[in-house]
Amino acid sequence: MAEIVKPAKEKAALVVFSGELDKALAAFNIATTAAAMGMDVTMFFTFWGLNIIKKNEGQLQSSGWMEKMLNWMNRGGSKRLPMSKFHMFGLGTGMMKALMRKRRMPSLDEMIQTAHKLGVHMIACNTSLGLMNLTEEALIPEVEGVAGAATFVGIAQESKISLFI
C-alpha cells in the first residue's frame, strides 16, 4: 500500500521583541490566524517580549542587586502589560481592557491559550533570560523551551512569513 505523504506545512516565524499589551495582541492575532490557516507558526520571545510569557503569579527569582532591581521594575506577566500609548499609569490600559470585554474580544490570556491549542510554538530567547538572570521557571508552561538566534534564523529561512513585532 502506498504511503500517504502529507504536504509539509508552510511556516511562519515571529520575533516578539515588545512587551506592550497592544503589540502582544497584534502578534497573537497574526500567529493564531496563521495557525488557523494551516501554517506551522513559531513565536520567538526576546527582550521585553519575555514579559508577555512570564507567569503572572509569584515573585521572579534572581540573584544580584541589579538583576533584582530590573526584575522588580520589569515584573511582566500577561496581566501587567502596559499599552504603548495612553497607558496613563494603568488608567488607559484598564479602559482599553474594559472596551475589549464590552466588544467580546478575547483577552491576551485567552489569545495565548488559543495559540497553544492551535499548536503555535512559543520559544524564549536564552540570552535575554540570562541577561535578566531568569530561568524557564519564570515562564508560563505553554512555552516549549529556550533557544538562540540561530534557531530562529533557521526557522525564518524556511518560513514564508517573518515578522518582528
Binding site: N29, T32, T33, A35, A36, M37, R103, R104, M105, P106, T114, L118
Partner: peptide, 13 residues
Amino acid sequence: VGLYCPMPIIQTT
C-alpha cells in the same frame, strides 16, 4: 455574531 477578527476564523478552524 458579535465577534471580531480573528475569532470567526479561529472558531471556524
